[in-house]
Amino acid sequence: MADATTEVPLVRTGAFDLKWQPGFGVATMVCLVLLYAPMIVLFVFSFNGSDSITRWGGLPNWHWYTEAFADQEFRSAAMNTIKITVVATIISTLVATAAAIGTTRGRRFAGQGAIYTVVNLPLMVPEIITAIATLSFFSLLAQYAGINFGIGNLMLAHTVFCIPFAYMPIRARLEGMDERLEQAAADLYATPWQAFKRVTLPLLVPGISAGTALAFIVSFDDFTITQLVAGPGQTTLPLYIWAKTRRPLTPELNAMCTILLAISILFVVGSFLIANRRRSKTE
């Protein structure tokens, strides 16, 4: 309980603090430790001087990172991941931006609710169900129509679940934006395209960047759907890491995991900073 009493002064503004509750600070610290400890352990042992995965030995060094980058399979998995993620992110952000504009501008119309539901559907369906459904669908296409897009299968599967993640921040941004700005542009004889390009789009940039970042992260990190849908030679980074755990474990695994974590964290913090900067500008 010592922790609880030490953090009281932080909260207290006067003699009696309304908002303080006993032990809540301790619970917060417990949550933070539980959430971050595994990631920190992974990070620290990626620099391990010995070849044990959680027993420290020797001097900290970059050895396991150079090992990881020298790994031919790791590099080809990275190439696959980049291809899939970039294509899925670009397509999903483009179509989600269009859909967000379509469902927020002008008066409500019949079917708008239905569009909203369909666009968000991939979020409601448990991932494993999406995974086996997509697998069944593509196997059906391959068997009876002779259609196989190769790595395009994964690109399409990723695009589907990226759309709602890209859509939401863009839609939120549009809802917070004054529609009269576009109407003013129209009053000044701007064509709809000009109004979009000169007024809507610049204001929408933070929403689109946040949407792009989220789409990128969910595609980059996806394991379940990719694992079931991926064909031979379509190994992505998460799949490769999973395969690695089936072999003797070395800190090379930590190094690869750390690289993946670093990339997602970079994107989260990046989109946070963009959102924050914009907010302080408008306030």
Partner: peptide, 28 residues
């Protein structure tokens, strides 16, 4: 016309999710 435009804007998303998200659910 505006409703048509807005449907058209939403159409690509609907098509992608419809074909590669909803049809697979029907397949299973």
């Amino acid at each position: 016309a505006s409703v048509r435009t807005r449907w058209a804007l939403s159409l690509p998303s609907l098509l992608i999710i419809g074909i590669f998200g909803i049809v697979p659910l029907l397949v299973i």
